[in-house]
Design a protein around this nucleic acid. Structure first.
Lengths: 336, 336
DNA sequence: CTGTTAGCGCCTTCAG
DNA sequence: CTGAAGGCGCTAACAG
């Protein structure tokens, strides 16, 4: 009768077991009492026919896919795997699967990915965005599913968000100052379009100001968060007639690049120049000298973001967007 | 009439535009000619009603989810992000989204994840498995969707698979031998249950044999692919009455641990002892001394695996399972 | 305690 | 060139 042994559905199972489809559905989901006898027949039919539950159909019906989307700049950037793992572990424990997407920090890409995830009917999205571009914000706001923002580049009050405490760079520079450094350079990141958040440069400036030190523009470099960018910036710093005695880099990748530059220039770290990074990526502890850095709780951020999202999906928690700030920690190693 | 402004479907759009649902569907998918006039009306209705295409319903109907699953041991292990990126890029280009799952190299977990992905109706699965456990193999074979195996721990002829060339450890040890080393130690990985593939130990032994060197059991350590495991193994090696002059570690994480151990013991690398790793993870080039290692084309492996899977999904290619072997490359840096 | 039935939102013959 | 209609496989009222 059936064309071939194509796919077997709940209906085939019900027929085989001599029960109704709703009974099958209920034994599948444990969602109402079914007599041991019928249950046994259903289970027998299931294995006899080698039936598999179709989650798509179920999701279509229940409007819940038990699926979330995670958009990060790049999994192969050592910062993100831990964050990803944090959300995945949390999601997995709750029965959710996660679509992992890389945006390469390109706003159009982010917008595209958000749309693709929406179309796949994810229940929610966690996003580490490049910045608060109007297009992205619009795309996010018209979304029907909840969004949690991670990272510190967007701080819009109408979204749930988990961010790092803002004063990491301040702490780092203060530490350098406390060690007697007076000429402290900054290798910052590129400006984030439209961001209203205090930048790393702000913390740097604040620490200098507090110590009564006039910032020297020559010591302020703009990097791009890549290793190579850090290396180049460091070389320019080292070529100055009055080079700095300490450098604070906006992330570890750039700090590591700076380390390479120092070695290339025959300058000793930390004896001739101290270096502090930001993030505490795995490589930071392996480098020689091991990098002093502002440790960011990456795994924890992922976990908290996922928990926030799941709570929202469960309808728990306050209705207002939450803003969660996670503490950093200055990890003092050998480079400063 | 409709309860509320809940969800708008293709049917609402058709009504609003005064056309049939099939016309709407066809403008949505560009799947048959629609007169400019009707098309315009449909498009107007779409924006007017703020309609969003429901991918779940579509997939249910077409039996294609444009979704694949990727199961790896652990994203936060520096080996995997690049592999993951390779498959994600390839999938993304072809319009597929990828579910990323971590198995922590636990067979039961792998089996569980395979089932979860199947239920979510992924079109295919890419898996870097812990080993050929019978349960996993069974689960994989009863799957209705294609599977591609990556990594070298399973080499079953009835699956598509992309693996590394087998002689990496042989090359590494031969290199050490060519540099005059005679006492070369091995820090291997744990045995892979049921695997028939040549292990790294095999290559090590082969290279020694070829050089006419009797393997010394005291120089063969079993590690666990973790940094700490490498560190411990190295300490034991260093404590030997006749310690080795060179060490080959089965992966970079262990080699890095060995480096740490050497430093702790005040032994210089490579002057007192040479170290070669395997994988070429990002940290390998940052370490001091930079690690000489067998570079594995991780990104490429991911890409090739995804391409293989996509080809299968398109029904292209030979019907027989493919076995693709990717070459490694010995990267000589400072540690040996 | 179990069965019938109406969709979820979409694609795709089959007619016209 | 366009429309009508039948499911894809499942859940959840609603009856009984």
């Amino acid at each position: 009768m059936r064309p071939s042994r194509s796919r077997v559905s709940i209906k085939d199972v019900s027929r085989h077991a001599g029960v109704s489809v709703s009974t099958v559905s209920h034994v599948l989901n444990g969602t109402r009492y079914v007599s041991p006898e019928l249950r046994a027949r259903v289970e027998a039919a299931i294995t006899a026919l080698d039936y598999r539950h179709n989650g798509l159909a179920r999701s279509l019906r229940t409007r819940r896919s038990y699926t979330i989307g995670l958009i990060i700049p790049d999994v192969s950037n050592p910062y993100y795997p831990q964050l990803a793992r944090g959300v995945q572990d949390t999601a997995d424990e709750a029965g959710y699967a996660v679509f992992l997407c890389n945006s390469d920090r390109r706003p159009e890409q982010e917008v595209r990915l958000v749309a693709a995830l929406e179309q796949r009917q994810v229940d929610g999205i966690i996003l580490d965005a490049a910045g608060p571009t109007p297009e992205l914000l619009t795309a996010l706001r018209r979304l029907r599913q909840p969004v949690v923002l991670v990272g510190s580049r967007i701080d819009e009050p109408d979204f749930d968000r988990v961010m790092m405490a803002p004063h990491g760079s301040y702490d780092a520079v203060r530490y350098l100052l406390s060690r007697g450094h007076r000429r402290v350079a900054l290798i910052g990141g590129p400006p984030v379009f439209g961001s209203t958040r205090p930048t790393k440069a702000a913390g740097y400036l604040a620490a200098l100001a507090e110590a009564g030190i006039e910032p020297d523009p020559a010591l302020i470099m703009q990097g791009d968060y890549t290793r190579e960018g850090g290396r180049l910036a460091m070389h320019r710093l080292l070529a100055l007639s009055a080079p700095p005695t300490a450098v604070f880099a906006g992330n570890d990748l750039m700090a590591l690049g700076a380390l390479v530059a120092a070695r290339e220039a025959g300058v000793r770290v930390p004896e001739d120049i101290a270096i502090v990074g930001y993030d505490d990526i795995p490589e930071a502890s392996v480098a020689v000298p091991a990098l002093t850095t502002v440790a960011v709780p990456k795994y924890e951020m992922g976990r908290v973001a996922a928990e926030l999202l799941l709570a929202r999906l469960r309808g728990e928690g306050s209705q207002q967007p939450q803003r969660i700030e996670l503490p950093h920690r200055l990890v003092i190693r050998a480079s400063a």
